[in-house]
Design a binder for these strands. Structure first.
Lengths: 242, 242
DNA sequence: TAGTGGTCTAGACCACAGA
DNA sequence: CTGTGGTCTAGACCACTAC
């Protein structure tokens, strides 16, 4: 079904996650893996490249490939660097209450991000989102209705992303995110039950379809104590010389 | 000097940044680029892979590769997903005031992250960092002195990262980061001049050397109004089927 | 010296978007 | 139908590490 390197990637990842391959351990060399999986070296490298980008393994030039230890965290919900959907894909029990649902003229900032003109209409959705029954995110969403038509109140109450992919058959491919800390405002106090000394973790996002069209601009204000953003950065080889 | 794909990557990137290749424009096909740069297709794909991961281009299967428009931001200092150094590499005028500089026994949490034993000594540095003369970060740094020896007060006042790479000749290769919003505490009020309703953007980081050794654990509390964390997420092809 | 990952070549076949 | 990126093969040489 999937490609060969994807199968190998999944296999190795699961071996790491289940502890068959232990942190610090050296895994087989690329040539040995070729034999084991009966494929060419490039296929193995494709798989190892993904594992390395995701922080599962670490490659030491001229020495070998090693399992990296995964330190994981606290009581917060983890928003991964690779997560594209607002929420519904990562967390389990997500429900939403729609606070506002209206069509406006697009403002300048949103128009810029969504590549729209000043006089274009935009769908604005303001939702309170619950995880396991607890109100934890206040989310402002701006959708381009020419790209994503037919979003109803019912869709907004559930998952817009699922509607886009499953009903419209479009593919969400990438997202740009900017994360900041913000003092809480009146709505945060009211809906997220925050004190005025307690902040939100704000994630501003522009999401793109698989043809490069930006379709959504959103501001998601997360309860500071319930979310964290994790990422793994890998420096490229020659980058330091520049 | 650098590898061929790196040269091609740099060349294409600069063409995008200088506007020779414009947002939305389709660039040459991979086979055409092979001829232009006189190399094999894999070398071209290596270059395009990086551009794609970094959000410069967007590949549409069976159609072509397109330049993506880069939206950039506000008045804040951008902490990029790919930035490894705390600061000194990205911003220009960074100075530091050392608040504490001492050797302690490592605590359990730090020991876990740095792969150390309970009775091991750890170097603890507490610094206030200024950008353009403004106090904007309070940073707690824990260093493993067995891995990074010879850090002096003088080093701490300047750049620990530069000392590691330039003086010790070690290579910083990767980092795991966890970003959260936190209410400001007394030190934040005192040193960063925050009000009690104003938060910090906290980045917790474990940094690794090029051989996979964790050498530093740090907590950096950033003035909420001066920093943002940006990232670009790209979904992998088959990921959706899982 | 032997083994490793990094780089590169020169091909190949596929499924499907777009004309 | 043609061109495209996605995947894959079966090699190759290199510089360096660890022994």
């Amino acid at each position: 079904m999937a490609s060969k390197y994807m199968e190998i990637y999944k296999d190795l990842k699961s071996q790491i996650e289940t502890g068959v391959l232990k942190p610090g351990e050296k895994i087989k060399s690329e040539v040995d893996l070729c034999k084991e999986y009966d494929c060419s070296r490039m296929t193995i490298r494709n798989a190892l490249d993904i594992l390395s980008e995701e922080g599962y393994v670490f490659r030491k030039k001229k020495v070998g490939t090693f399992v990296l230890n995964h330190v994981h965290s606290h009581n917060r919900t983890i928003i991964s660097e690779r997560e594209l959907s607002g929420l519904t894909r990562s967390a389990k029990n997500v429900t939403s209450k729609v606070i506002k649902f209206e069509v406006n003229f697009v403002d300048q900032n949103v128009a810029l991000h969504l590549n729209m003109k000043k006089s274009d209409p935009v769908l604005y959705i303001y939702r309170l989102r619950y995880v396991n029954g607890e109100p934890v995110i206040l989310e402002h969403t701006y959708l381009n209705p020419r790209v994503i038509p037919g979003v109803t109140l019912d869709v907004a109450e559930h998952s817009v992303y699922r509607y886009i992919e499953e009903t419209l058959g479009l593919r969400i491919a990438s997202a740009k995110k900017v994360t900041t800390a913000q003092p809480s405002n009146e709505d945060d106090h009211k809906y997220l039950h925050l004190k005025d000394t307690e902040p939100v973790l704000m994630i501003e996002q522009v999401a793109y379809l698989d043809d490069g069209t930006p379709f959504e601009y959103s501001l998601a204000r997360h309860h500071y104590d319930k979310f964290e953003m994790t990422m793994y950065s890998l420096r490229r080889k020659e980058m330091s010389h520049k």
